[in-house]
Simulated assay, not measured.
Amino acid sequence: MDPITSFLLLSSAAFGAGVLNAIAGGGTFLTFPALVLTGVPPIAANATSALAVSPGYLGSTMGFRAELAALPRTLLIREVVLSSIGGVAGALLLLVTPASVFSSVVPWLLLFATILFAFGPHLSRWAGGGSGGGLASWRRPGLLAVAVYGGYFNGGLGILLMALYLVCGEQRMHTVNALKNLNSFVLSVVSVIAFAIGGAIVWKQALLMAVFATLGGFAGARLARLMPARVVRAIVIVTGLTMSALFFVRS
């Protein structure tokens, strides 16, 4: 692919990912395939995509400062530690995964993330319907497991985190969102650091996409007030299914 076409594809995919993440999530369905289509190997594409979309997590976390400040400091420290450990473990798992194995797993990961995204609202409502008291003890190992998944492959992470907190008894949605954004940011940062140390990030593409993803995030915040969420969700789901099918064919 020639440089101009690659630039246009990567910048538009990153911008679109920033918009989607600001409104409904699912930006990975654009950034990861775009990198692969421009010739970046799947493992490097996954690591580079993680860096490209990571700036948006910081803004989301800052938006819930009040909710985080109201939580016990010991709880926040524990959450950050578990997310960090899981994020690093997932990133290291990706780095030691043979490229051929990861390439064969990618279609299933994309499909799994798409299904999670499609049924996320139903899962959250189901999880929020119970008291969750009997499952509270699963919060720590559950967070660690989800963080490992997030460090390995970012798609569907937010939905998994929200479902975890709701199942384990947290009924305050603003608090659920605050913890989801905090842990997404933390594990994203540590996994990106691990990817950088492991030499898995393609920096030129990563920095280009990070800029456009940030711009897309600002645009998405405005667009969120105009476009119905169900329309955006439908676009993400169709995109996810299409990308899953394409990667199944490629594999």
Rank of each mutant, 00 (worst) to 15 (best):
P55A: 12
P55T: 13
G59D: 11
M62D: 15
G63M: 13
G63W: 14
F64M: 07
F64T: 06
R65S: 11
E67C: 11
L68S: 01
A69Q: 15
A69S: 11
A70N: 12
R73P: 08
L75Q: 15
L76W: 12
L76H: 09
I77F: 13
I77N: 04
I77K: 12
R78Q: 07
R78G: 01
R78T: 04
V81G: 05
L82C: 09
S83V: 02
S84C: 06
S84M: 09
G87E: 01
A89D: 10
G90F: 04
T97C: 00
T97L: 03
A99W: 02
V101R: 00
F102P: 06
F102D: 06
S103C: 08
S104G: 08
V105L: 10
W108V: 04
W108F: 14
L110K: 06
L110W: 03
L111Q: 10
L111D: 09
A113W: 00
T114Y: 02
T114M: 12
I115D: 07
F117T: 02
A118W: 13
A118P: 08
A118G: 11
F119K: 06
F119I: 10
S124V: 12
R125G: 04
R125I: 05
W126T: 09
G128S: 02
G129A: 14
G129I: 10
G129K: 07
G129Y: 05
G130H: 12
G132R: 02
A136F: 13
R140C: 14
R140L: 15
G142H: 02
L143I: 07
L144H: 07
A145S: 10
V146D: 03
V146M: 01
A147G: 02
V148W: 01
Y149M: 02
Y149K: 01
G151W: 08
Y152R: 05
Y152K: 00
Y152Q: 03
F153N: 02
N154C: 11
G156Q: 07
G156L: 08
L157E: 09
G158M: 07
L160V: 00
L161Y: 06
M162H: 08
M162V: 03
Y165P: 04
C168I: 01
C168M: 00
C168A: 09
G169H: 09
E170W: 01
Q171M: 15
R172A: 13
R172F: 09
M173H: 10
M173I: 15
M173P: 09
M173C: 08
H174F: 12
H174R: 15
T175M: 04
V176Q: 03
A178C: 07
